[in-house]
């Protein structure tokens, strides 16, 4: 198809969100605030990694169509530089404290579930199938992260302050989730991609409802990082991604051509 390079790019956006956020959640292993939380964070990370791999598998097929033979899964994950990653700026933000991690998760999960809902209606049957499968997992992720926003917002004075600080700090990265560039516009017109801009209002209402129960204030919408077509989806990241990739890719890159 003519728009294969665009579709490949779009698949990387979906795949990289999963891979990068799973990498962040993997950093928590053994260090969670309670054993149950440790297990749950790893569980969510595993789901996201699995989803990332499903999107990556489709991305590989698409790339092989227009640039044969295409690259393998691990070449895409471990041999791309930061500028070739297409994840949202939000998911690469550092773990911080537990409120920072859960706020990042909640803001993303709420968008992710809505996005997958829209993608489940894609004219591309593969995209629709992966989205439908992933949505079942993400529904649980959202239930958990929304629950934590409420617990932390409503819990103690300290937890309330930390939750509010986390939301305030991460808010500038939420606008990018609803920005639509030329690549997405073409794919939306073809009925393949989800129209991210149409998710903004429902996302805001859903987030506001949870914040209301958590007694957290909705931050005002000011300047949004990466929302102007120069953000993570276009390969322009925050400084954090480079460090994350340095760690993630070190072994694979130290042994070119090795199989593991």
């Amino acid at each position: 198809m003519d728009d294969d390079p665009q579709l490949f790019d779009y698949m990387l956006r979906l795949a990289d969100n999963g891979i990068v956020l799973a990498q962040r959640l993997g950093e928590w292993v053994g260090k969670g605030p309670a054993l149950e939380e440790d297990i749950a964070l790893t569980n969510v990370g595993l789901d996201l990694l699995g989803q990332g791999r499903m999107w990556l598998a489709y991305a590989r097929e698409i790339e092989a169509r227009y640039a044969p033979p295409g690259r393998g899964e691990d070449a895409l994950a471990f041999l791309r530089d930061g500028g070739e990653f297409r994840n949202l700026l939000l998911v690469e933000q550092p773990n911080g404290n537990y409120a920072d991690t859960m706020a990042r998760q909640f803001l993303f999960d709420q968008w992710h579930l809505m996005l997958l809902g829209a993608l489940a209606g894609s004219k591309d049957a593969r995209i629709a199938a992966i989205a439908a499968k992933a949505a079942k997992e993400v529904r649980y992720h959202l239930e958990r992260s929304a629950d934590w926003m409420i617990r932390l917002g409503d819990g103690t004075e300290l937890s309330h302050r930390r939750a509010q600080d986390a939301v305030d700090a991460l808010w500038v990265y939420t606008g990018e989730m609803f920005s639509v560039d030329a690549i997405e516009r073409g794919l939306v017109a073809a009925g393949v991609a989800a129209d991210a801009a149409s998710l903004r209002d429902p996302w805001r209402s859903a987030v506001a409802a949870v914040f209301d129960e958590a007694s957290l204030a909705m931050p005002g919408d000011g300047w949004m990082q990466g929302a102007s077509g120069r953000g993570g989806k276009q390969g322009i990241h925050t400084e954090h991604l480079g460090h994350m990739l340095a760690e993630m890719q070190i072994v694979a890159r130290s042994h070119p051509g090795a199989r593991w």
Binding site: A22, G26, T42, G45, L49, F78, E247, V251, W260
Partner: peptide, 18 residues
């Protein structure tokens, strides 16, 4: 976990530690 050399190995290791 953060340095596993393939995505398959990363997933298996996360599952094991979990």
């Amino acid at each position: 976990i953060t340095r596993a050399p393939s995505l398959q190995r990363k997933a298996t290791l996360m599952a094991k530690v979990q």
